[in-house]
Structure formats: structure tokens, C-alpha cells
Measured scan of single mutants.
Amino acid sequence: NQASVVANQLIPINTALTLVMMRSEVVTPVGIPAEDIPRLVSMQVSRAVPLGTTLMPDMVKGYA
């Protein structure tokens, strides 16, 4: 089972991601792979992401 990136806190719209905002977790459906966490740092979210939400490619500007 592949771990995905999950929000560790509420991430407001247009916030630049930092390591403390993200954790890896095995979830369904699968989201952005956990190994991409270093690449996500400083990228902005395109919408508010609630705590515990799996990050999907369309939620991060410039990821897809």
C-alpha cells in the first residue's frame, strides 16, 4: 500500500506548503504520493485543505 500526502492541519487557500503541514498516511483513495513531499514544499494550495484531507494533484498549484 502506498502512502499519500495528508494535511496535518487546516491549510488556507493560497498557502505555501511547509513540511509541518503534511504527513504521510495510507489512505483511500490514493492522493499525491508521500515521496513527493519534498517537491511540494513552497508550492501553494489552490483551495482550503481541511485537517486530515488527502492532497490530490489538482489541489496544489503547479504540481500536476
Rank of each mutant, 00 (worst) to 15 (best):
L40C: 04
A16F: 07
A34G: 15
N8I: 08
P33S: 13
T15D: 04
M21G: 02
G31N: 01
I32T: 00
S46I: 15
D58M: 12
V5C: 05
E25T: 07
L17H: 00
S46N: 13
L17R: 00
V41C: 06
T54D: 00
L55N: 02
V60D: 02
S24C: 06
N8K: 14
V26Q: 14
V45D: 01
R39E: 09
I32L: 06
M43C: 06
P29M: 05
N14V: 03
A48V: 12
I13P: 09
V41F: 09
L40H: 01
E25L: 05
I32E: 00
P38S: 11
L51G: 13
L10M: 11
N1F: 15
A3W: 08
L51V: 15
M22L: 13
T53P: 01
A3E: 15
T15R: 06
V20F: 14
I37C: 04
L19G: 05
L10I: 14
G31K: 00
P12T: 11
M43T: 04
A48C: 10
V20M: 15
L55V: 12
R47M: 11
Y63G: 03
V30C: 11
S42P: 02
Q44D: 04
V49T: 07
A34L: 04
V27D: 02
S42K: 08
K61D: 09
R47W: 07
L55E: 02
V6D: 00
R39Q: 09
T18E: 09
D36N: 15
S42M: 09
I32S: 01
L55Q: 01
A64G: 12
T53R: 15
P38C: 06
T15V: 09
R39A: 07
L19I: 08
V45M: 11
V5G: 01
M21Y: 06
P33Q: 07
G52A: 07
Q2G: 15
V45Y: 00
D36R: 07
I37N: 01
G52F: 05
V49R: 03
S24K: 08
P50T: 15
P38E: 10
T28Q: 09
L19V: 06
D36E: 13
Y63E: 03
P33E: 05
T53A: 14
K61P: 07
V27P: 00
Q2H: 11
A34D: 11
I13D: 08
V30T: 10
S46V: 14
P38D: 07
T15C: 04
V20L: 12
P33C: 05
V27R: 08
L17W: 02
V20N: 12
E35Y: 08
V41Y: 05
R47D: 06
M22Q: 00
Q2A: 15
E35P: 07
N1E: 15
K61G: 06
V6A: 03
A7Y: 02
L51F: 14
S24Q: 10
V27Q: 08
M22K: 00
P33K: 07
T54W: 02
G52L: 05
I13N: 13
A64V: 14
T18C: 04
I13R: 10
V45E: 00
P33H: 14
G62F: 09
S4Q: 02
G31W: 02
R47S: 08
Q9W: 11
A3G: 14
N8G: 12
V30S: 14
Y63N: 03
A34F: 07
N14D: 12
K61L: 09
P12D: 12
